[in-house]
């Protein structure tokens, strides 16, 4: 494990960075999960996006780009001497899609947090709409468990969320570092597996299945 400098700077040997998006509806646990795994105190920053007009056409002839600033969380894990992983937490609501698309470009994948409690699952639907329409990124679904979360099987959830049969669905506790890391590991394993069958120039051998040690 790479030790973290007290001033928060990365080791000078780091040359590459990779990002993962953590998305989900309001209050689902995005900030909590990033804070649980980040080596730097979780940070918030703002990004400027063009405001999504809600069904109203912009006034013709007005050369006024409407921008708004939205907050995003991020965290960092230095994975080895040359590689840093960044996690970005973004809300799933439609009005944040601009921000999301900017972040999604070049990302390794998306961890989708869902809250399956009655009345909460519906808020995740637009997140999945966006994943299907806006990106081709690999994603896995992590059910964040709250005290009153009723357990559902992965298949029940795939049906409820209209997911493909091979989309990984797992349980997680966003407050727990090990649990959050396991979710990220599942995502990256899935990204590796699907990349093998992706572009024509990729090696076509089957990935060796590796049991996760928790």
């Amino acid at each position: 494990m790479v030790s973290v400098r007290s001033d928060g700077y990365l080791p000078g040997t780091v040359t590459k960075s990779v990002k993962i998006l953590v998305v989900g509806s309001f209050g689902v646990g995005k900030t909590t999960l990033i804070g649980a795994v980040s080596e730097i105190s979780p940070l918030r920053t703002e990004e400027i996006v063009t405001q999504v007009s809600e069904g109203v056409d912009d006034l013709a002839g007005v050369d006024d780009k409407r921008t708004t600033t939205v907050a995003m969380d991020f965290g960092r894990i230095t994975l080895d001497d040359t590689l840093a992983l960044y996690l970005f937490g973004t809300p799933g609501q439609r009005r944040f899609w601009d921000l999301w698309e900017g972040l999604a470009e070049g990302a390794a994948g998306v961890l989708v947090l869902v809250d399956t409690r009655p009345g909460r699952l519906e808020a995740s639907f637009e997140v999945f709409d966006q994943l299907e329409i806006g990106t081709e990124l690999p994603f896995v679904v992590a059910v964040n468990h709250f005290p009153d979360t009723v357990p559902h099987s992965a298949d029940e959830l795939r049906t409820a969320l209209d997911l493909l049969p091979d989309t990984p669905v797992l349980d997680c506790d966003a407050r727990d570092r090990g649990s959050a890391l396991a979710a990220l590991t599942t995502l990256v394993q899935y990204a590796v597996d699907t990349s093998a069958t992706g572009p024509a120039d990729a090696p076509q051998h089957l990935p060796v299945s590796q049991e996760m040690v928790s």
């Binding site: 590689l83 070049g106 390794a108 081709e136």
Partner: peptide, 16 residues
Amino acid sequence: QLPRELLQEVLNGLRA
């Protein structure tokens, strides 16, 4: 899509 070797390096890093 990221190069497979880079994804594998991320995976190895997370596992470690």
